[in-house]
Amino acid sequence: MDQRLYIVAYDISDQGRWRRIFKLMKGYGEWVQLSVFQCRLTARQHAELIALLDGIINHDEDHIVLLDLGVADNVIPRVVSLGKAEFVTIEHEAVIV
Rank of each mutant, 00 (worst) to 15 (best):
R40M: 09
A9T: 15
R40K: 15
T89S: 00
I7M: 10
R40W: 02
K26G: 01
F37R: 03
V88N: 00
F37T: 10
V32M: 11
H46V: 00
V75P: 13
W18P: 07
Y10C: 04
L41N: 10
S81R: 05
H63R: 15
L67I: 09
V71N: 13
C39S: 14
G55A: 06
D68C: 11
L52I: 08
T89L: 07
V95C: 05
A85L: 05
T89K: 13
S35Q: 13
G83I: 00
I96R: 15
V36W: 06
I76K: 12
E30G: 12
A47P: 12
L34S: 08
R4H: 10
E93G: 12
R20A: 03
V32Q: 13
E48Q: 12
D73H: 11
Y6N: 10
W31F: 14
A43Y: 07
T89R: 12
A72L: 07
R4W: 03
R20I: 01
D62Y: 04
M1S: 06
E93P: 05
L24E: 08
I12S: 10
I64H: 01
V8Y: 10
W18G: 04
T42I: 08
D2F: 01
A85T: 05
R20G: 04
M1R: 08
C39P: 10
R40Q: 12
G27Y: 13
V79T: 00
R44T: 03
L69T: 06
E61K: 15
S13A: 14
I64L: 00
V75D: 10
L34E: 07
L41F: 07
D11F: 12
D14S: 03
N58R: 11
D68R: 14
C39L: 15
G70S: 06
G70M: 10
S13I: 09
C39E: 09
H46Q: 05
A85E: 04
V8P: 10
V36N: 04
Q33K: 13
